[in-house]
Simulated assay, not measured.
Amino acid sequence: MITNLLKEVARGKRGARDLNYEESLQAADSIINLKATPAQIGAFFIAERIKMESVEEIEAFVSVCRKHAYRVPVQQGLDCAGPYDGRKKTFFATFPTAFLLAAAGLPVTLHGTGSLPPKWGVTLQDLLYESGIDADQTSRDQIIQAATETGVLYVPAEQWCPPLKELRSIRVELGMRTVLNTAEKLIDFSHSPYLIFGVYHNTVFERMAKLTTNLQYKKALIVQGMEGSEDLFIERPTRTYIVENGESSLHIIDPDTYGLETSVPEMDWTPVEQLCVSESVLQGRGHLAFVNQVMLNAAVRLRLAEKVDSVEEGLYTCKDLLDNGAAWELYSKWQNMMRSESKLHCRS
């Protein structure tokens, strides 16, 4: 069956066509369940990369991934869907932002894996490991208990959706982006009504808006953020799309509007440095650029999830939670509950 579908998507730039939803489900089933050979899977991924995936094709891969994933409504809050290939040049603001949001009463789901192509950057999983948390070795019960008590869920995606682990070697060998780079971010492990989703190119805004509508999120914010992530810039405006009730609109978020625009220092973003800066921000003693960036991202996400009536109100809320130590206290509790071994971390 995959051979016939390959003939449709791999006819070249002029001859290739998008698969309809039923055909896409067949292709996704063949690939996710490894019914296709590695050569066929690789050929399909490359053909789709050249053709560009349609909304129906991505949705089919999301649907099949969801069927093979452990998904439980531990907390119905905000899903932060950033790229699994990590960061190389920018701060992982979404990590400390998650604890600020949880301290404000908004449950957050984070998820990721070890680094992947094409970027091969520092991942959330790398940060956690430096913090003494080996997410791949942490039991599901332990992860869920930490989420229940703190409001922050971190999902090691290849453990909770095993086909992703099975397909890793093919993706590594190809060394390029595939349809899974998008689908894996939308598995929605905790059935979140709200989504913040990072994209690299603004040309995909409309397609991603239609996709999030089809996937029935209550409200989504698509962000052309740092390195294709869901994180807003602090040194310049960020292009975003707000999606709600089947309608979408462009929204430029300018940090200067809120008096937060700040130049970002040059940094060597190793996992250790990412963790140290994150912890400094949560302790209220970080560099102003990163403190402002976390507050802006948190305030916008609180507004998205209807926890505050305005970004300004969100900023006041977040500043208070940093100043009174609530965000740091929650992070410390979560870290202790998740930690599987003792490692050096940056609390000095």
Rank of each mutant, 00 (worst) to 15 (best):
S63G: 01
R177A: 11
Q159H: 06
E184N: 07
A98W: 15
F92T: 06
S249H: 13
R71K: 09
F45Q: 07
K218I: 06
N214P: 01
S263I: 01
E184M: 15
A27G: 03
D18H: 15
R14C: 02
T109R: 02
L211W: 10
G121W: 01
E53I: 08
D323K: 15
H251V: 11
E227W: 05
A43Q: 15
V272C: 02
R87G: 03
A326H: 05
D29P: 01
V152H: 05
T270Q: 12
Q335E: 14
F44S: 04
N181E: 10
S278M: 09
P73Y: 08
C161Q: 14
A43M: 11
V204M: 08
N33D: 12
G284F: 09
L275W: 02
W328P: 04
L282N: 10
C276E: 10
D18R: 06
L174C: 03
R239K: 14
S340G: 15
H68L: 05
C276G: 01
T182Q: 10
T113I: 05
I31N: 10
N297M: 00
L315F: 01
S278G: 15
V243C: 15
L321K: 14
L211E: 02
L153V: 12
L195R: 02
Y200Q: 12
G151D: 07
V172C: 03
F189V: 04
V74K: 06
M52E: 14
F61L: 05
N20R: 07
K89Y: 11
L330H: 04
E59I: 01
N292C: 02
D320H: 13
S278R: 09
P96L: 12
T150G: 13
E329G: 04
T90G: 00
S342A: 14
L127H: 02
W328V: 02
G112K: 03
A299S: 12
R17D: 06
D134F: 09
N336E: 12
A183R: 10
Q159R: 11
R303Q: 05
R140G: 01
L174G: 04
P73F: 05
A209V: 00
E53D: 09
V243M: 05
M295N: 03
V311T: 10
Y21S: 01
G132R: 06
W328I: 10
K35I: 03
Q26G: 08
R168I: 04
P83C: 01
L296Q: 01
T270F: 08
G132K: 02
I58W: 07
D134S: 12
A60E: 05
S342H: 15
G286W: 08
A47N: 03
V172G: 00
K119I: 10
